[in-house]
Simulated assay, not measured.
Amino acid sequence: MAGRGEVATELQRQADVLALGRDMADLCNPAACAAAIHAHAPSAVINAAAYTAVDRAEQEQDLANTINGAAPGAMARACAELGIPFVHLSTDYVFAGHGERPWQPTDPVAPLGAYGRSKLLGEEGVRAAGGVAVILRTSWVVSAHGQNFVKTMLRLGADRGRLSIVADQVGGPTQARAIADACLRIVAQVQRHPEKSGTYHFSGAPDVSWADFAREIFARAGLACRVEDIPSSAYPTPAARPANSRMDCSTTEAVFGIPRPDWRIGLREILSEVQAPRV
């Protein structure tokens, strides 16, 4: 299992997994990642690691392509050679993000920027490996640790009376704990039913804008910070963001019995962990 980020941390909390950090499996070296899998001979691999600096990827496209594209492909080939399942996390950024209809796994992809293109390369490499593999696209990952929107809002909301937040980008915030649980359940099922291999979606419900998500964070955290709705054009970034990150997760529920998690419940759990007194 590769990665020490938000989802990887939750995987280690929920199951007995071997987490391979950069010292053991550097995603900048795809061959080394494949070799590590062969060396440890696990029963399955979950790739929860990625290059996630969306804006910086515009200037570091080669690095993003190596970490998000070449490395997953190499790991998937190693898993195929060993005959073990490979679960790979991808993103809503593989889509162009237009319209309002939730994206289905079979919809045409058209990434807007370097990050999305790098993740699409990874998907293509995983599929080309030809093994038992599940690509799980998710969105707006949040948790009590790492760098994410909830943590940023709590920090800024405690210091400011008002924040301007983008209101024309809509998607499903997804708790890292829920993603980890979904990955573990998927692994258990594809080990018995390899025919369930494929591409699936998994995101929190209900869909919400960043601005409304921020309002809910402040309300539940007891922060008196007002949110001003602004369009994406008023907050320019080096990389374009999908306006529509809604994801159709019905196939995931139908095949694996995993429904969309309620992000409001997840937010309550995150705030409880963040705000818990330290001893």
Results as ranks from 00 to 15, higher is better:
Ala214Val: 00
Val208Gly: 07
Leu82Glu: 13
Gln275Tyr: 04
Ala234Pro: 05
Tyr51Val: 14
Ala57Pro: 03
Arg155Pro: 01
Ser164Gly: 04
Ser272Ala: 15
Ala50Gly: 13
Gly122Gln: 08
Glu273Arg: 13
Val45Tyr: 01
Arg215Tyr: 14
Ala64Cys: 11
Val255Arg: 10
Leu271Tyr: 07
Gly171Ile: 03
Ser209Glu: 07
Asp92Lys: 08
Arg162Val: 12
Pro242Cys: 06
Ala219Ile: 09
Asp181Arg: 12
Ser232Ile: 12
Val208Trp: 07
Asp16Pro: 00
Ala178Lys: 02
Tyr93Gln: 09
Ser43Asn: 07
Pro173Gln: 05
Gly257Gln: 15
Asn68Gly: 06
Asp55Phe: 13
Gly73Arg: 04
Trp140Ala: 05
Thr138Gly: 09
Gly73Asp: 02
Leu121Trp: 07
Ser245Met: 14
Ala35Val: 06
Glu81Thr: 03
Arg268Tyr: 13
Glu124Asp: 00
Asp207Phe: 13
Pro242Asn: 05
Glu228Thr: 06
Asp168Pro: 07
Val141Thr: 12
Tyr115Asp: 08
Asn68Ala: 02
Ala19Cys: 12
Lys119Gln: 13
Thr252Val: 01
Val274Asn: 12
Arg185Cys: 06
Val87Leu: 13
Thr199Leu: 14
Trp263Gln: 03
Phe149Glu: 04
Cys225Leu: 04
Ala25Cys: 10
Lys196Cys: 11
Ile135Glu: 01
Ala78Gln: 00
Pro259Asp: 03
Val166Lys: 05
Glu195Gln: 14
Ala19Val: 12
Ala221Leu: 13
Leu121Phe: 04
Asp16Cys: 06
Ala41Cys: 03
Ala70Gly: 02
Arg241Val: 03
Arg192Ser: 15
Gly161Asn: 01
Tyr51Ala: 13
Val274Gln: 12
Ile186Cys: 15
Val142Thr: 10
Gln59Cys: 15
Ser143Gly: 14
Gln147Cys: 05
Asn65Thr: 03
Phe86Pro: 03
Ala176Thr: 04
Ala133Phe: 06
Ile258Gly: 04
Ala178Thr: 03
Arg220Val: 11
Val7Thr: 03
Ala50Lys: 05
Pro231Arg: 09
Arg117Ile: 13
Ala71Glu: 08
Leu18Thr: 14
Arg13Phe: 03
Phe218Thr: 00
Pro42Arg: 06
Val166Leu: 01
Met153Lys: 11
Gly172Glu: 02
Ile67Lys: 04
Gly69Leu: 06
Asp207Tyr: 09
Gly222Ser: 10
Val170Ser: 00
Asn68His: 11
Arg127Pro: 07
Glu58Ile: 10
Ala110Ser: 09
Ala39Leu: 09
Arg101Ile: 08
Val141Phe: 06
Leu82Lys: 09
Glu100Met: 09
Cys225Ser: 03
Val94Ala: 05
Val150Ile: 03
